[in-house]
């Protein structure tokens, strides 16, 4: 397998790359390439879009790389390569982001990214730390052999509100439900950081790499 992690100057890619390298080695080998060159997406078997910071900045960063969004649409939507978005990389799949004004997303999974508003005012924003994943066992290969209630590491202030509830694969409770994992066809996204979520996170990464959508 040949994993491409898209570098559009959004945050720290080293830890993501390390976690994928670890998973690739465990699964028998392959390559992990961190790149901002859209041409390299053609060689990828799996495409990963990380992202930290604000939706609008991330979208601008992605759009700022000439040909990147076209290459993503070609490889992920037209060719159907397995795609994983992480944190803001997951949010970018939405139709709209409402952080710092309205920004159009990639429009791959209908919905919008809005501020999380816990119904308990004592809950802090950002939602930062380890939260327990709630999902139906067997709902998606990405969560194979992970127990509901397992924890993953989150840090975010905005969340994915999907138009179609069927696209929400897992949630966490933070003064109300917050989307933790989203998916449609060959697309999956995690609001949490699998590269920071110890064994559970490495498991999610391995599941993604084994997945044949």
């Amino acid at each position: 397998m040949d994993v491409v992690i898209i570098d559009y100057e959004s945050g720290n890619l080293r830890s993501a790359a390390k976690a994928f390298e670890h998973a690739v080695d465990e699964l028998g080998g392959g390559s992990v390439l961190v790149t901002s060159d859209p041409a390299r997406l053609a060689d990828a078997s799996h495409i990963v879009l990380p992202g930290v910071g604000a939706f609008a900045d991330c979208k601008a960063g992605l759009a700022g790389i000439s040909g990147m969004i076209d290459a993503l649409n070609e490889q992920v939507i037209a060719r159907g390569k397995p795609f994983l978005g992480i944190c803001v990389g997951m949010q970018l799949m939405a139709s709209w982001g409402r952080e710092h004004g309205d920004t159009e997303g990639l429009g791959w999974i209908p919905g919008e990214v809005v501020a999380i508003t816990p119904n308990d005012p004592s809950l802090k924003i950002p939602h930062m730390g380890w939260n327990a994943l709630e999902f139906e066992p067997g709902i998606h290969p990405l969560l194979d052999s992970i127990d509901p209630g397992s924890h993953a590491y989150f840090v975010h202030s905005y969340g994915f509100r999907a138009d179609d509830a069927a696209h929400v694969l897992a949630r966490v409770d933070y003064g109300g439900p917050v989307t933790a994992v989203i998916g449609r066809n060959n697309l999956v996204g995690t609001q949490f950081h699998p590269e920071k979520s110890q064994r559970v996170g490495l498991h999610v990464i391995a599941n993604f790499l084994k997945w044949r959508p």
Binding site: S15, K18, A19, H22, H193, Q198, G201
Partner: peptide, 12 residues
């Protein structure tokens, strides 16, 4: 930091 990031997949 780099050596830790190779081994520990948790927030640092």
């Amino acid at each position: 930091v780099a050596r830790t990031a190779e081994e520990c997949f948790m927030p640092l």
